[in-house]
């Protein structure tokens, strides 16, 4: 049995493909096929009552020249970028704090981060309306302290959307960061101090480089879904803070322009693909140490 014969390796290959079949099937049916349909639709004319009529056209792509769409797209990217940055600034210290607690505390703290997930996303976002609206918690409090006369406009703008996005995606940042920090060898911090580096230099030269993987993973996990968000801006945002996700949703459901909706989806996907590629190149490099 020490020399595997060719037939054996062939059998192994067959076994492997049988084992992989469910996963392959799942990917083809639910990922590749819809993607191809969307790509196909983007080159077809719209049907009168939704759907498509089977005529090839490039018109849908030409519509993208309209600066309105670029405005929405830029806003989406800006908001997603802002969300990612805030999540990182809040999430890193939080993950660091959790990872440096005694083990029995770590699980409890992680649970506290995950618990909000057990509530429906819509309900959690609606809760922010109660907090942010004119008669809401914040405005009532500030007014009763006589700090302001007029209620602040906290709701139905980009500010409210950013809050909702940060709130919704923070766990996606904290969990991968925690996973890297938990494996981090904290004696390296002592070594760095020993060699004369203060806390800031230790952070920049030792801790951040060694937890870069978690930073990149967390940022992608926040950035990618945040770009395509449509529920949060729908509920918390006003007319001036719609994101590209709302536009896509609107083309499919409201305007019944499936081909143009497909074009917008593909543009969005292309933009999101860039950071993914960066991530994969990054993870290949960091395998070296």
């Amino acid at each position: 049995m020490t020399h595997p014969s060719p037939s054996q390796t062939l059998r192994q290959k067959i076994n492997l493909s049988i084992l992989l079949f469910p996963a392959t099937f799942w990917l083809i049916l639910f990922f590749l096929l819809p993607l191809l349909i969307v790509l196909l639709y983007s080159f077809l004319e719209r049907g009168t009552y939704g759907g498509v009529s089977w005529v090839f056209t490039l018109e849908n792509y030409q519509r993208l020249i309209n600066p309105i769409y670029w405005g929405v797209l830029t806003r989406s990217l800006n908001l997603a970028f802002l969300t990612t940055t805030i999540c990182l600034l809040v999430g890193y210290p939080l993950a660091f704090f959790i990872a440096t607690r005694p083990p029995r505390w770590q699980n409890t703290l992680l649970l506290l981060i995950i618990i909000p997930f057990w509530t429906n996303f819509l309900i959690r976002i609606y809760a922010w309306i109660i907090i942010l609206r004119n008669e809401g918690v914040i405005n009532t409090l500030l007014q009763s302290l006589n700090l302001i006369n007029q209620p602040l406009d906290l709701l139905f703008n980009s500010f409210a959307v950013s809050i909702g996005l940060v709130y919704g995606y923070l766990p996606f940042m904290v969990l991968p960061l925690y996973a890297t920090l938990e494996k981090f060898d904290f004696s390296l911090i002592e070594a760095s101090h020993d060699l004369g580096a203060n806390d800031l230099k230790t952070l920049i030269r030792v801790v951040l480089p060694l937890t870069l993987r978690g930073i990149v993973a967390g940022s992608l996990l926040v950035f990618i879904p945040a770009v395509g968000e449509f529920i949060t801006p729908d509920i918390l945002g006003g007319a001036k803070s719609i994101m590209i996700g709302n536009l896509v949703q609107n083309q499919f459901l409201g305007a019944r322009n499936w081909p143009f909706g497909s074009v917008l989806s593909i543009v969005m996907m292309a933009i999101v693909l860039v950071p993914i590629l960066i991530y994969f190149r990054n993870s290949e490099n960091s395998n070296q140490f």
Binding site: D185, S187, D194, L210
Partner: peptide
């Protein structure tokens, strides 16, 4: 003072 640590604590990156 400087320390030579038991597990060496070299910077892996």
């Amino acid at each position: 003072v400087n320390t030579v640590f038991q597990n060496y604590a070299l910077f892996p990156h």
